[in-house]
Structure formats: structure tokens, C-alpha cells
Amino acid sequence: MPLAESASIVPVVVDKDLCIADKGCTVCVDVCPLDVLRIAVKDGAPETAYMKYDECWYCMPCEADCPTGAVTVNLPFLLK
């Protein structure tokens, strides 16, 4: 049986303009205990961090440790 493509809105948002993943930063990806953040790649080069998996404990290390303040942690929709 094939898988569905049901969408879900993710709680963590990264401000592309502030994110310096293009300069090699991966701090938020490194610290997340649930390992749900990744760096998007554009034309073979790192572009920005984003939340790839909707599996968030809304705990905040990603936001607290980001050197540029690019990350905002919102409450997951189901419990906000």
C-alpha cells in the first residue's frame, strides 16, 4: 500500500535572512534532542536550516543556541 502525503504544520520556523547555514553553521541541527532539523540545500550548497520532521518537544535548544537569533519555536498546533 503506498503512503499518503498528508501535510502537517511544523512548530519551528527559521528566518532565512538571518540564518547563516550558507556559511557553514549547523548549530541548531546539532543540538536538537529529537534530531528534527536539517539544512536545506540549493544548487548543491547549504542554504538554510528548516524543520524536516514534525516531532518536536518544544524544548528550545535550537532557538537558545542559534548564533543569529534566526530560530523561533512555536507550540505545535495540536497542543497550543
Partner: peptide, 15 residues
Amino acid sequence: LPTSGYLYGTYENAS
């Protein structure tokens, strides 16, 4: 399962 239905909406660190 938390009543919110969110698998990671737990008291404990969900990892």
C-alpha cells in the same frame, strides 16, 4: 499518548 494526540507532547524529554 498525550491527550493532545501529539506523539512528542510528553512530560519527559521525548527522546
